[in-house]
Design a protein around this nucleic acid. Sequence first.
DNA 1: GTTAGCACTCTATTAATTTGAGTGCTAATA
DNA 2: TATTAGCACTCAAATTAATAGAGTGCTAAC
Lengths: 361, 361
Amino acid sequence: MELDERKKKILQAVIKNYLETGEPVGSRTISKYTDLNLSSATIRNEMADLEELGYIFQPHTSAGRIPTDMGYRLYVDDMLSTREKELDKKDRKLDDKAESLKTMQEIMDKRVDRIEEVLKDMAKMLANNTNYTSLVSMPQANKNKLKFVQLTQVDEGKLLCTIVLEGNIVKNEMIQLDREIDQQTLLKLNLLFNNTLNGLSLQEINFDMAANMADQSGELGGLVSDILNAIVAAIGAADGIEIFTSGATNIFKYPELSGNENASRLISTLEEKDMLTNLLTDSLEEMGESSTGIQIYIGEETPVNSMKDCSVVTATYEFEDGVYGKIGIIGPKRMDYEKVVDALKNVTGSLDQKFGKGKKK
Amino acid sequence: MELDERKKKILQAVIKNYLETGEPVGSRTISKYTDLNLSSATIRNEMADLEELGYIFQPHTSAGRIPTDMGYRLYVDDMLSTREKELDKKDRKLDDKAESLKTMQEIMDKRVDRIEEVLKDMAKMLANNTNYTSLVSMPQANKNKLKFVQLTQVDEGKLLCTIVLEGNIVKNEMIQLDREIDQQTLLKLNLLFNNTLNGLSLQEINFDMAANMADQSGELGGLVSDILNAIVAAIGAADGIEIFTSGATNIFKYPELSGNENASRLISTLEEKDMLTNLLTDSLEEMGESSTGIQIYIGEETPVNSMKDCSVVTATYEFEDGVYGKIGIIGPKRMDYEKVVDALKNVTGSLDQKFGKGKKK
DNA sequence: GTTAGCACTCTATTAATTTGAGTGCTAATA
DNA sequence: TATTAGCACTCAAATTAATAGAGTGCTAAC
């Protein structure tokens, strides 16, 4: 059997109607809804075919039809491609992106700790506007190259180790020493670490190197390896992505989600945040897809178990060279994909708007 | 009418039974449950009195009784005071504590330096053990006294300002300069800031001082005030308390909470975290109450609106001198107060030991 | 003061009934 | 051959009715 034009139109109509109402849609509705001018009986026949093809199904005999994941997938792909065409028509500005990135970089430069606030606000805004759940990941350095290390004595026997990574990500680690240390030594240590570690990534700071450095430092050996451990720990900790969520309870607005106890599991996932990592780190490279970094997971496609009857849309933003973050929306499978994609595109693209374009360049 | 001993005993029995079953408790149940050897009819009379006194009520005619907030309050106060007496008598508590500390200790040993991780684990453990929702606040400096400032050149024209506050809380701020700066000047600036600001709190770094310092620095004046601004901003940011929650979805286990849409509001509150501030900063000073820093809010007593039909128990722990954090449990009003208080005491006890008092000597 | 006994109330549960949306199939129609 | 009208059938959801049971309040007796 083939998916001819008419079937496609009917499928489209079914899905569109279902997105709006959330109720299974019957043949009579379609008969009136479309401009096809077909009787409900004909629609019924076509719908039976569509069901056989796997695009729609009935929750039970004598109910209307509901799209399957496969149906949604067709619909979404269609939507995305026509959308792309439209964009091609209007001259799309690639440099627009470049501009917005500039501004983000400046935000970062100015307030190391405050991007957090910006992103939180963004998540909140997204959740409010869409009535779905939103999540945002802090920009994450892909390659954590060490740029700079600073050891400072804070108390007797207590060293503060400040580490700056490529992309100006700052980490602190407190080190407890078992002995006193004088200014002279401290200076020496600072020099040593900066000379040796500069430009290296976590992977490159291995055990050999640790042994080596410790050897060369003679009596300071133990100290050196202690500090090295602290540095590694701090960089490692930078791997744990920070994620903010907003509007978790919006899922209660959609009966098909709030009913079963999956709702609870979903909220747990959002609270734990560990599992979300899959969504937001996965495929940072494969952001080719639609060249906008937009990625859509429908139902079973999502990598997170507790979201198997949701859909998830994510977008990637670039923060600096090689430093990416992600923004996502979680909603029912019958979410308004068009609106969500738009919202995400706007948000990633309009960070500069929010903070004034005057600062670019 | 008086609340004589027998009434008190009956009330106790009603509450105890209700805590266990969650169902309204009737006269016959009490008649058998207690050692009072009274017929159900007598109990009925007494219960009518207790209702008139405001300690219990019927959800509807011909149902058993349920404690009112006032009833709970009596029960809890009683529990706390007898508990205090017991502790005074026996020193046996050490055994108990040592045992439960074992698990706690394991968590702690994992990573002393990553307080955040420790606290998160702790929250998770508490939620799992109690089946309620837990929340933990990062230790917060009461008075943010400046201990140490370090300026470091990261890029050309870019300064990293690392600030250490009393209690070893570290903040970073990136400063963009409009001109180059040489090592000599940097050294001078470092010296200047440390000498001038050391030991001062945010309130004490006022405009007068800014003007003063800028004046004294001659041509460096603009630079100095830029940096001063950065410092103030960083300290100010330290005011936002970080709070972790765990087990938010545990509230679904209690029908009286999960039913209405308050459940959703409660979860929103937990997600937002802003509102939780009230719970966890409030009354850091008034921790006198029972000299253990334990505070119990029953129903309407809680300062957070979305928790008006929950009970909240909070405890204070000391991180270092003058640096406190709080731990809280949120559950239904019929929570197992005794167990919760115990759990919190243990947890704060071991935290004190690990971080604060214990570690000191 | 305490208790036994009874009438009464109200909820919760289960079963029976009705309603209506929607389908599938068949036979007639263009 | 593709479309449509018509009808019998199905199933979920809503409505109603019937029943059981827990618990109370009150009264009269102990």
